[in-house]
Design a protein around this nucleic acid. Structure first.
Length: 874
RNA sequence: GCCCAAGUGGCGAAAUGGUAGACGCAGGGGACUCAAAAUCCCCCGCCGCGAGGCGUGUCGGUUCGAGUCCGACCUUGGGCACCA
């Protein structure tokens, strides 16, 4: 190690980062190995969709995973940290439609581009395990599991509604429906029924709900969201006797979670998709017209629930179960969902906001069943919907006490009804079965065949994968598989006769519901290799966006159970993610200028010039900050600044990681993205923050350079320095364990400040810097290697054992206690750490400020919290 | 419409119910320099000359003590089953 001065003249991230990446690759430090002698650790970031460009959100996600992976490597774990591509999906087909080309070419091209953009980040990924979900090797195994699940009774077909574009004659995704119209055709969208494939996730409703309690290392909010999504409810299911209904509809089954409000019923309502509505539709043109009207618009819940509540009186009536002489009208209503309960309800307007709106509109009676405790029965200005745990006074109750909670009222009502033979108490779930059929090309083909003789027949496993044909075109809307001249034709696996392939492909959520398991044996000839899965599962730490809190994570939890049932995962893996962390977005300011646009309007009295304004956006590099304002560089026009906006191309506030890495190096990007905000919150990317990160890394580098060239020095400050180093080890370790990377970085800043001021021996400084290199290594691995090497560290810092804090050096002898008087800080005293409370009290009362405030009186109360604070209450 | 979360200086933030603002950015002052860049040092919540007062989205509550706990509200963000 001669010529240190030359080597260390300046920190050059470009050279240094490539050098260390090569060193890690050569030593194969990130290759995941089954090692019986070591504990294993599986860290996984949600794999990306290959859009073609990485963005700062990816950098943040993968850097966090990398910190965890590298920290665990240093802790002595055998680490699995893989990466792959969620490669099926609509954008590839859209690109093919817009620009021509093939989804496959586009997707694999994007994967190559994105991988090239990711590699300079220096992530600790075992790239030998990489795969894309569009690889036939992967989706073939998915098809094999589909067949096993079909055999196990976890898959079935039924009719379900889709968004139908009547002009393009195609099915639309919810995001392709804009204001009830098709995004390309602009035609009003209709709801249409198709026979589709479903996974029986509802078989697991109860279990998926109950098991949430065991997910201790998941964010509470995600568990709450999933619990609400599963939506367990206890209620009463009973049948109304109908009057004037068609043949076969003598009874109308309804489900209610509020049977205690039965006496407030003023109507019954059924979904437009209810069998009774269909029967009426066939013979009554008015019903047919209304039902057709209800089927306009998209299928999304947000759309249905925000639509105006509308109903049509059918003329049919039902008898009230508690009083057969009392008849209620039956409506068809657009806000009743066929998927939930029985698709029919009774309406109690007094205690349901939607029913209230409906009853008001159609002039139906609104009678309170209960009133607040102490209140009297009176006309209601709006629905009265207290929490079920609240005690209320039943004025039209029929079961239980007059004053009881809603919960008790419901329970008594169910018991009472069961006793009288009116229906039965049932537990219902809002969770619906998972529809996986997609009428699209770029997805995993559903491996079944439709045979005129045998019906629906599973493809034989030896014929898998059912490959997507390459010769397809996207010049006309719709699924190219459906119109492919030869692909659809095949032999029935059962009878050998002419048959047709299923042309639906699977929801891409299926692909992402088991990729974590496939990473444990990415090239196995079966979906999983049980020995590998048994060693590596579960994922110890999963990291991704909160937007996946419900669907992806719930489907994965179901799929792991289904895989276990079909023998593809061990029992311990049915909850595949031990710990979950949801990170925030990366945001950036938007620079916007209102551009005045002249409009000439003729008003009758002469031409008038009107102005309207159209926003114009500027890229970060197009503006400059000066004199407390922000201006466009070329034109000097002032722009307004919108802070913390999600990065989006149209708003021109996207920062490209590639440019940042080119300018400052990967370590700077990694350091900044971790330093500025807590990981679960959004972080705002700022140019000045990135520059500051770069400056800081250089500063550390310069300190190392200075130490390397310094004289042996005086050891007077060695102990103080050692204390600071061990304090930092303890704090940084705790912060990383708690996913508080921003705090870990703040502690490293503090240590750096101490270090740059320290007067200690070269040996002590060298130790301090070597330790700092270790502490920084998970965040800025390249610089850490550089410093580690310069300070004479053995081998690579990435594999060096994590430092341990010496408890003896963390102890403090004395402690400063703030003294509050009536809760306001007025003074402070410094006392030995272990001073008994009685002595502290004595000292406090002798304190000048306290004595003055007391003015000879004894305090009303004296609170001493040892080691923390003193409060004197006058 | 329904479910979930977040709001603290000019900005990003920190704070087992116990000194609000650690650490960083921006800003101000100084050193070095012919000068600039880079680097280093100091100051920096708001009002007030000061003593002091006020401050964690808003309003109320619990407590010796509340950013933290409870209730209501406001704003912003995520999800709502075919975006991934």
């Amino acid at each position: 190690m001669t010529a240190k001065g030359q080597n260390m003249a300046r920190y050059k991230p470009g050279q240094s980062e490539a050098k260390w990446q090569a060193a890690w690759a050569k030593a194969e430090v990130f290759k995941a190995r089954r090692d019986a002698a070591k504990p294993k650790y599986y860290v996984l970031e949600m794999f990306p969709y290959p859009s073609g460009r990485i963005h700062m959100g990816h950098v943040r996600n993968y850097t966090m995973g990398d910190v965890v992976a590298r920290y665990k490597i240093a802790q002595g774990f055998s680490v699995l940290h893989p990466m792959g591509w969620d490669a099926f999906g609509m954008p590839a087909e859209n690109a093919a439609m817009e620009r021509g080309g093939h989804p496959k070419t586009w997707t694999y091209g994007n994967i190559a581009d994105m991988k090239a953009q990711m590699q300079p980040l220096g992530l600790s990924i075992d790239w030998s395990r990489e795969f894309a979900t569009c690889d036939p090797e992967y989706y073939g195994q998915q098809q094999a599991m589909f067949l096993d699940m079909l055999a196990a009774g976890l898959v079935y077909r039924k009719a379900a509604v889709v968004n139908w574009d009547p002009v393009d004659m195609t099915v639309l995704a919810n995001e392709q429906v804009i204001d009830g119209r098709g995004w390309r055709s602009n035609a009003p969208v209709e709801r249409r029924e198709l026979t589709q494939w479903f996974f029986k996730i509802s078989d697991y409703s109860e279990e998926l709900l109950a098991a949430l309690d065991g997910l201790k290392d998941w964010p509470e909010k995600v568990r709450v969201m999933q619990a609400n999504w599963i939506g367990q409810s206890r209620g009463l299911q009973f049948a109304f006797e109908t009057v004037g209904a068609p043949e076969g509809f003598g009874q109308l089954e309804v489900y209610t979670t509020r049977p205690d409000t039965l006496m407030g019923a003023s109507f019954a309502a059924i979904s437009p998709d209810h069998p009774l509505a269909r029967a009426l539709e066939a013979r009554d043109p008015a019903v047919a017209a209304f039902v057709a009207e209800c089927r306009r618009g998209g299928t999304s819940a947000a759309e249905i629930e925000t639509a105006e509540k509308r109903g049509l009186e059918t003329g049919i009536r039902v008898r009230h179960p508690l009083d057969p002489a009392w008849e209620l009208p039956v409506y068809i209503a657009n806000f009743i969902l066929m998927d939930y309960g029985t698709g029919a309800i009774f309406g109690c307007p007094a205690h349901d906001a939607r029913d209230f709106e409906f009853a008001t509109k159609y002039g139906l009676p609104i009678n309170a069943v209960f009133v607040p405790e102490g209140a009297v029965d009176a006309p209601l200005p709006e629905a009265y919907v207290p929490l079920k745990s609240e005690r209320v006074h039943y004025v039209r109750g029929f079961a239980g006490e007059a004053v009881q909670t809603g919960e008790a009222g419901v329970a008594s009502a169910i018991a009472q009804c069961e006793e009288r033979g009116i229906g039965r108490g049932v537990t219902n779930y809002r969770l619906r079965d998972w529809g996986i059929s997609r009428q699209r090309y770029w997805g995993c083909p559903i491996p079944v065949v439709h045979c005129p003789a045998c019906g629906v027949v599973p493809e034989r496993k030896e014929n898998l994968p059912v490959r997507l044909p390459d010769d397809v075109s996207f010049d006309v809307p719709g699924n190219p598989l459906d119109r492919h001249p030869t692909w659809r034709d095949c032999a029935c696996p059962k009878c050998g006769g002419a048959a047709r392939r299923e042309s639906d492909t699977m929801d891409t959520f299926v692909d992402s519901s088991w990729y974590y398991a496939r990473f444990t044996a990415p090239h196995a000839a079966t979906p999983t290799d049980l020995a590998e899965a048994d060693y590596w599962m579960n994922v110890d730490q999963y990291i991704g966006g909160i937007e996946h809190a419900i669907l992806h994570l719930l489907y994965s939890r179901f799929f792991a159970r289904a895989m276990h049932k079909t023998g593809h995962l061990p029992a311990k893996a049915i909850e595949p993610f031990n710990a979950l962390f949801t990170q925030g977005m990366v945001t950036h300011e938007i620079y916007k200028r209102r551009q005045k646009v002249e409009l000439t309007a003729y008003t009758g009295g002469g031409d008038m010039v009107e102005f309207t304004s159209r926003p114009e956006y500027f890229l970060p590099e197009e503006v400059e900050r000066r004199d407390g304002g922000v201006y466009v560089k070329d034109t000097d026009e002032p722009v307004s600044v919108i802070p913390s906006a999600k990065m989006s191309k149209s708003k021109k506030n996207v920062v490209d990681p590639v440019n940042i890495i080119r300018a400052f190096g990967a370590d700077t990007a990694r350091w900044f993205i971790l330093s500025d905000s807590p990981p679960e919150r959004d972080v705002e990317w700022t140019a000045s923050g990135a520059e500051a990160a770069y400056k800081f890394l250089n500063r550390v580098w310069l300190i190392a350079e200075r130490v390397a060239e310094s004289a042996p020095g005086d050891s007077a400050g060695d102990e103080a320095l050692a204390r600071a180093v061990h304090r930092a080890i303890a704090d940084v370790t705790a912060s990383i364990e708690n996913f508080a990377f921003n705090k870990a970085i703040a502690k490293i800043y503090e240590l750096t400040n101490t270090l740059s001021r320290a007067t200690a021996s070269r040996a002590a400084m060298t130790f301090a810097l070597r330790t700092m290199a270790q502490l920084m290594s998970p965040m800025v691995p390249h610089l850490a290697e550089e410093i580690w090497a310069a300070m004479g560290g053995a081998g690579l810092v990435v594999t060096a054992p994590w430092p341990k804090a010496d408890p003896a050096l963390l102890e403090q002898d004395s402690v400063t206690l703030p003294i509050q008087i009536n809760g306001k800080r007025r003074a402070e005293i410094t006392v030995p750490k272990d001073m008994p409370t009685a002595e502290v009290e004595k000292l406090v009362l002798e304190d000048e400020t306290v004595a003055k405030a007391l003015a000879g009186q004894a305090p009303k109360k004296l609170i001493v919290v040892p080691g923390r604070i003193v409060n004197v209450v006058l």
